[in-house]
Design a protein around this nucleic acid. Structure first.
Length: 892
RNA sequence: GCGGGGUUAGCUCAGCUGGUUAGAGCGCUUGCCUUACAAGCAAGAGGUCACUGGUUCGAGUCCAGUACCCCGCACCA
């Protein structure tokens, strides 16, 4: 187990391009991300939310995948047999539309010109192209997926799972075919589920139209936002309790223009307060009207067709576009005196979430999943905490949706997707589902059977992803070893679309939930807070960011900007800051390597060396950092973990520790001290880099390989554990004295404009304990504060004259700067400081005078407050003394 | 209508289980190319934690209400 070391010269500025590709290739070569199906071994598993093969990845994917990669790399380092399973989604409508668009633009052809088979070939080659892109983008990001297990929702295995699940649900009666109102997108030429319709508040009109009573005794006035549907009206409804219209119930009106006589019915659905309190009923074009039609046995007259044009039933308007029809109809109604009035009215209009076309509610025969029985257990597992949302608040959204769920329309009139595995026998009429393509009717053995032409909603296959990718319905090793998964990481925008559906599908087909934790993150917005979208053109390409700043910088940006569940604004400046951090880490490593040239690690435990104060301090801080980072990761709080590391590395490790050990490393404190500093630096840096690895995989691997290390890759390095032996509160406290003294001297120097290069002497008055700390660390204080000499005297020594002074950590500091001292300014400064100290003292005293506080607060807290109070008193006293000297000197 | 989130420094945001002096990045001021890093170093300015009340010894943090902003879901003839 020889420790390896490579001490090639590192460039001054970190260049991500030079290292990223190299290491990813290496990781793949050595199979660093491969999970072995070994039942019994502690494992961690996760499936990726499969990106759509519609196009390239965007920032949202980068965020989602970075979070997952942090988890995967961290768990892997913790020794878990870790599987992060990658793949892509066929994205039915979205992909088909894209390919059709291209076909039209480039060849002027429609999919019908090509035919189903030829068209699908085109889609497959599109899929191949974008799948390749997606994979290479993920590699650029550093995603540590097990590529040997990559899946696609329409590959053989996933397709088999789709059939198995469909047949199971079909045979249990959970999938049925029905004639209902569905959302129809006239542009995409397919049905949509409730979720795929976006309701947009739209300014429209409410037209009041007169329907004359057949018996000539009066009229009914209805109000509608969609007058063209009146051509399909088969009733007018009023509320049964509505006194105004009670007498009309049972009478008939004659539809203007159409001439059809339709009844006035009574139905509870009608809201007497809305419009005129009379509703036209169009069972074929409105979901509520449809239900009323069922209740009252009304005729269904379809007047708008699949192409959004008026049908033959529309009489003289047949063939017109629905909006053109509306215009003409209104004109005609007006001309013939049926239009009572037109009010402006704002209402939500459904739009296709893919193409933004106004959706048409249409009557048609479709396949549905019966949701109530499936939702029940899916609600339970969340309520019982068997599936936990992180942050927890998202479970409310989930539950609300599940509890109010309606049946799921799963048939799509597309070509790209899983063909519905249902066959109809033309001879005996049998309708049956099958996992294997049947050659004959299962009932009458006729070969005259036909498969349903439609395909399934994409989300039907996505819902099976956590187990279809692991081989179900076959009993595979993977399934046994890695299912159910541990965590799912995804955005809040697909909780209903996907997370919810995976949960009920898994409960139904596997008998267990598909995962334990659902980690929800926000979406990425632009710098103005807008959603990134293609139509706004405000999207940012992760690859361009990686090219410019490096993958680690992009990852760190996404991670530090993240608070659980919250959205995140993208600013290039943030990536710049992360890039700077990467460079900081790089240079810390560079510095270390320059000073570790002759260093050889031995097996001795770091705590057993002749440690100096700074060593004990940084080891203690390091050990705290290990603890904190691990704690944050355990809570899926990626952002806090990243920030903890950022601060530790930049401030404590670089600004203080590295600076303080420079004299030692340069040999000015003797060889023994130098050796110890080397050991501590190597130790802390190596393990800090390991802690950072899940966040910034590339730069940490590069650095780690240069540092003395064991093993072939940092990917497999053990995750550092918080070592209690390194915790050292005393060292932290003492180091606090050193740092505060240094800061105070620097402050005086800056205020007095002492040239940075000029070393000046300092006199310090301190009690015995602090005096010892200062004396022991004198060489470092001299260097850090640029002192020519420091004279530590007992606290009661006479005060030096003609000196700028300050109090820090209970130490009175004097810089004799004869000639530089402006007494008046100095007095002013000290007065301000005294005022501030006394203000704090007052608050502190009030607090301690409060009996409730002293009696009820934890002893620790009270003790802390007392100590703080003593320190403040001490400080006030010292500042007062300084002031007294200055002012008395004045009067002399 | 139901539900959720937000309001903290000039900007963008953190702030966990209530506990010393509320943090970061960017921006700003001053001074530095100090042999790891100018993508840097040092020093500094900048905050009524939206408002009102409550719980508590103690509230940015918990509770209730108010205001404004954002987002889901449902309804909308």
């Amino acid at each position: 187990m020889g420790a390896k070391k490579q001490t090639t010269q590192l460039p001054k500025v970190y260049d991500p391009k030079a290292v990223e590709e190299k290491w990813y290739r290496y990781w793949k070569e050595i199979g660093a991300f491969r999970a072995e199906a070994e039942p019994g071994k502690k494992r961690f598993s996760m499936v990726i939310p499969p990106p759509n093969v519609t196009g390239n990845l965007h920032m949202g994917h980068a965020l989602d995948q970075t979070l997952q990669d942090v988890l995967a790399r961290w768990k892997r380092m913790q020794g878990y047999n870790t599987l992060w399973l990658p793949g892509t989604d066929h994205a039915g409508i979205a992909t088909q539309i894209k390919v059709e668009e291209r076909l039209r633009e480039e060849e002027g052809l429609s999919r019908h010109d090509l035919g189903r088979e030829a068209f699908l070939e085109r889609v497959w080659s599109w899929k191949e192209y974008y799948r390749d892109n997606i994979v290479s983008q993920m590699e650029r990001l550093g995603a540590s997926c097990d590529w040997s297990r990559e899946r696609f929702t329409m590959d053989e295995g996933c397709s088999k799972a789709v059939r198995a699940a469909f047949v199971q649900l079909f045979e249990k009666g959970l999938i049925y075919q029905g004639y209902y109102i569905v959302h129809w997108c006239p542009h995409c030429q397919t049905t949509l589920s409730d979720l795929e319709v976006e309701h947009v508040e739209t300014e429209g009109n409410l037209w009041h139209i007169r329907y004359p009573l057949v018996d000539g005794s009066g009229e009914a006035v209805v109000a509608t936002t969609r007058p063209e549907t009146m051509l399909g009206d088969t009733a007018v409804a009023v509320h049964p309790e509505d006194e105004r219209y009670r007498h009309l119930i049972g009478k008939y009106v004659r539809l203007p223009i159409v001439g059809r006589e339709i009844p006035i019915i009574a139905d509870e659905f009608v809201d007497p307060k809305f419009g005129t309190g009379m509703v036209k009923v169009t069972p074929a074009h409105d979901p509520n009207d449809f239900e009323m039609g069922q209740r009252h046995n009304l005729e269904q007259v379809t007047v708008i067709g699949l192409d959004a044009k008026m049908t033959e039933e529309a009489g003289r308007y047949a063939g017109l576009d629905r909006y053109e029809c509306r215009r003409r109809l209104i004109a005609d109604l007006d001309a013939e005196g049926w239009l009572v009035k037109t009010e402006s009215h704002s209402h939500a209009v459904g739009h296709c979430y893919r193409c933004n076309t106004v959706v048409e509610p249409l009557l048609s025969k479709q396949w549905f999943v019966r949701m109530k029985p499936l939702a029940e257990p899916a609600i339970q597992v969340v309520k019982e905490g068997k599936v936990r949302f992180v942050p927890e608040r998202f479970s409310k959204n989930y539950l609300h949706w599940m509890e109010n769920i309606r049946d799921w329309c799963i048939s799509r009139q597309l070509w790209w997707g899983h063909r519905i595995p249902v066959w109809t026998c033309h001879d005996c009429g049998e309708v049956f589902a099958a996992t294997e393509d049947p050659a004959e009717c299962r009932k009458c053995r006729s070969a005259n059977i036909e498969q349903d032409p439609d395909v399934l909603d994409t989300w039907f296959s996505s819902a099976l992803w956590p187990f279809s990718t692991m081989g179900w319905p076959d009993k595979t090793q993977d399934l046994e070893c890695f299912f159910p998964t541990d965590v799912l990481v995804t955005g809040w925008d697909i909780i209903y679309f996907w997370v919810a559906r995976m949960i009920f599908m898994s409960l139904e087909t596997q008998g267990v939930p598909p995962f334990e934790h659902v980690v929800i993150h926000g979406i990425i917005r632009d710098s103005l807070g807008r959603k990134m979208s293609k139509s706004l053109g405000n999207g940012v390409d992760p690859l361009e960011v990686i090219d410019e700043y490096g993958a680690d910088a992009l990852r760190m940006t996404l991670l530090t900007g993240t608070a659980p569940g919250n959205d995140l604004r993208y600013y290039p400046e943030k990536v710049e800051a992360s890039r700077n951090f990467a460079n900081k880490v790089w240079n810390a490593a560079r510095f270390a390597l320059m000073n570790l040239e002759d260093f050889e690690p031995d097996g001795k435990h770091i705590a057993d060396r002749e440690l100096e104060l700074a060593d004990r301090w940084i080891l203690s801080r390091y050990s705290w950092t290990v603890h904190e980072v691990t704690r944050h990761l355990n809570r899926f709080d990626f952002g806090e973990g990243a920030r903890t590391l950022y601060d530790f590395i930049w401030t404590e490790l670089c600004d203080w520790y590295v600076e303080i050990i420079k004299p030692r490393l340069y040999g000015r404190a003797g060889e023994a001290s130098r050796r110890v500093a080397q050991h501590v630096l190597a130790y802390v840096l190596t393990h800090t880099v390991e802690l950072l690895h899940p966040y910034m995989p590339f730069i940490t691997e590069e650095i780690w390989q240069h540092l003395p290390h064991q093993g072939e890759t940092i990917v497999k390095a053990p995750w550092p554990e918080a070592d209690g032996a390194l915790q050292d509160p005393e060292a932290e406290e003492q180091m606090q004295v050193v740092m505060e003294v240094v800061k105070a001297i620097r402050n005086i120097r800056a205020e007095k404009s002492v040239p940075p290069g000029k070393a000046v002497p300092a006199i310090m008055l301190a009690d015995a304990q602090r005096g010892d700390i200062l004396k022991e660390n004198a060489p470092y204080i001299l260097a850090l504060a640029r002192l020519s000499d420091m004279d530590v005297r007992p606290a009661d020594s006479p005060k030096p004259e003609q000196a700028a002074a300050a109090v820090a950590a209970g130490v009175a500091l004097y810089l004799p700067l004869a000639g530089l001292i402006d007494i008046a300014a100095e007095v002013e400064r000290l007065r301000r400081e005294l005022a501030e100290t006394e203000e704090q003292l007052k608050r502190s005293a009030a607090r301690l005078a409060n009996r409730g506080f002293v009696e009820k607060a934890p002893a620790e807290v009270v003790e802390g407050a007392r100590r703080r109070h003593r320190e403040l008193e001490e400080k006030a006293e010292k500042v007062k003394a300084l002031l007294a000297e200055l002012t008395s000197g004045d009067s002399e």
